[in-house]
Amino acid sequence: MRLLHTSDWHIGRTLHGTELLAEQETVLGGLAEVVAADRVDVVLVAGDVYDRAVPSADATAVLSRVVARLRRAGAAVVLTPGNHDSARRLGTFSELLAAGGLHVRAETRQVDEPVLLADEHGDVAVYGLPYLEPEIARFELGVTGARSHEGVLGEAMDRVRADLFLRPGTRSVVLAHAFVGGGQPSESERDISVGGVDLVSPAVFDGVDYVALGHLHRPQTLTPRLRYSGSPLAYSFGEAGQQKQAWLVELDAGGLADVRPVPLPTARPLTVLTGSLEELLQDRAHAAAEAHFVSARLTDPVRPADPMRRLQTRFPHCVHLEWTGSAAVSDGRTYQERLRGRGDLDVVGEFVGHVRAVPATAAERDLIGRALAAADRAEAAG
């Protein structure tokens, strides 16, 4: 049996306010080509199917079309909710969906009820563990003393192993959405820690043939049978240049036989450009970035006027701007410390200088002083 391990689709996510639905559908819909080319039997989605608990109608339509393409290509789909999803919403009509080959495992109390799939060697039990919020899952699982993610996941895995004991010879796969020790985070994941209780030991997942992990957005191997697929798209500029992938997992009669990476296409690359505004607008070396999502770090000593609009004349997908010129560097004092003992005229004058990176002139300070005096008179008059 061949399984395609994916996770963290985050359908509906934006990049600095820019919608990514078209790029997401391009990449996720392209998984159907992998299914057909590599004769994949099952596509796994280990949590964070959507980017928010209440997805938009457009986001749900993208998921519907992507799953339909995967099914037409010949694969069943097993998915679980992550910390971004609403498990109850995602699990709606799950029994009916299962009849069409889409298996949603969203109920905490059903963690030991696998999706049973068969090949020429017998059954494969696929256990989908939804993201287990400790303060909720400990009551649902009847382990009220378990206040950490490891505690509730440990109970869930104990139930999985108990069910497997009753299925001798059955091969096993677990989907879980967690931060497992040894994993390397990216800047685009939402923190799931509460005082450090998010970290889970790899030993929690002992006793199964393969564990398809979700939550961390970079692909990584913790052990040969314990892996993160990472997100199929880059969701922060910290992931610029990162090759996204899925894992193609093969099970034979004895269990895990092979795992290999399947590179995924990049719908629109992310690029970070650094230089003065004029350099970025004129340098021909940046021609390829004109079709990319761009984050610009401007090094001009004085803040340029209207920089985003000007950048977007060349880079229409520029979505982020940062000014790093010398005048942007703080002197290390807090805002309160910088205001202490200073009058209104000094404060407003410094603000004007900070915004323009050029100190206010004497004439401007005179105008500011007269405006402040007029404001004081108006306030005194009621």
Rank of each mutant, 00 (worst) to 15 (best):
Q245R: 15
A246V: 04
A246L: 10
A246Y: 03
L248D: 01
L248F: 05
V249G: 09
E250P: 06
D252T: 07
A253Q: 11
A253F: 00
G254H: 12
G254D: 15
L256R: 05
L256K: 04
A257D: 12
D258R: 15
D258F: 11
V259E: 12
R260T: 14
P261Y: 01
V262E: 04
P265V: 08
T266K: 08
R268M: 10
R268I: 12
P269T: 04
P269K: 02
L270G: 00
L270V: 09
L270T: 06
T271G: 01
V272W: 00
V272G: 03
L273K: 09
T274A: 09
T274W: 03
T274F: 02
T274Q: 14
G275C: 08
G275H: 09
L277P: 01
L277E: 08
L277A: 06
L277K: 01
E278N: 14
E278G: 10
E278F: 05
E278Q: 15
E278D: 15
E279W: 09
L280G: 01
L281A: 04
Q282C: 05
D283N: 14
R284V: 13
R284F: 11
A285Y: 03
A285W: 05
H286N: 13
H286T: 12
A287W: 08
A287N: 13
A288R: 14
A289H: 05
H292A: 15
H292R: 00
H292I: 04
H292L: 05
F293P: 10
F293K: 01
